[in-house]
Design a protein around this nucleic acid. Structure first.
Lengths: 107, 107
DNA sequence: GGGATGGGTGGATAATTGTCAAACAATCAC
DNA sequence: GTGATTGTTTGACAATTATCCACCCATCCC
């Protein structure tokens, strides 16, 4: 309920644009972003994300980059880590950016 | 007037989103983008771009990354290389993206 | 408790990248 | 032509990063 069950992430006001773009300037992480675009929470299973070719620790690394950039949030639920987009925080910090990115990525 | 006086760059249709984001995910290149946001042509002088601390070859390298990503175009004019934003091409390929990026970078 | 499951951690390694320096190339000014 | 100006290219080097592997750590289930 509180933040104690969330992995460390920057405050909304501390989300840095260049850091976000650096995080998204990678094909694997862009794939993850598109998976998260549905707004739902996703587990870290590489198979469920179209990343079967990558080792689970590699996927874990990419998820950490996204989270530390402020793009995603990770909630700890038992054995699972549930990752989702920080859509509200991103929209507040950089209005229109996420929509433009998702539209561009989907084209 | 033809393309012969322009340095190599991708066709508008070949501009790749992840490549663009990778190019902009660097503080120096984001600084360059903001300089180019006025739509004018700019020379490559590091001093005129707030990059006095960088060697001219380093700036040249960053400009190449931006150009090869499709973000900028470089026109050869005598000794000068005049760099400017590919605003129309970017707006056509990814509508709204450049505006959102520039708005975010200016905030 | 014991095993299985979902992920993270740390080390190793190879590839990429940011930076500078020195040399080069083309153009301009005289 | 001589020299100065404007950038690019190449090489070297350090830092970052993407990936895999082996191991660890919780948690869940029986």
């Amino acid at each position: 309920m509180t933040d104690t069950d969330r992995l460390p992430q920057p405050a909304a006001a501390d989300i840095d644009l260049v850091t976000v773009l650096h995080a998204l300037g990678d094909p694997v992480r862009m794939t993850l972003l598109l998976s998260y675009a549905d707004g739902a929470e996703h587990s870290c299973d590489p198979g469920g994300l179209g990343l079967e070719h990558l080792h689970k620790s590699t996927v874990s690394h990419h998820m950490r980059v996204l989270r530390e950039a402020g793009v995603t949030t990770t909630r700890v639920a038992g054995r699972n880590r549930l990752v989702s987009l920080r859509r509200t925080d991103l929209d507040t910090r950089y209005p229109g950016l996420l929509d433009a990115l998702l539209a561009a990525a989907s084209s």
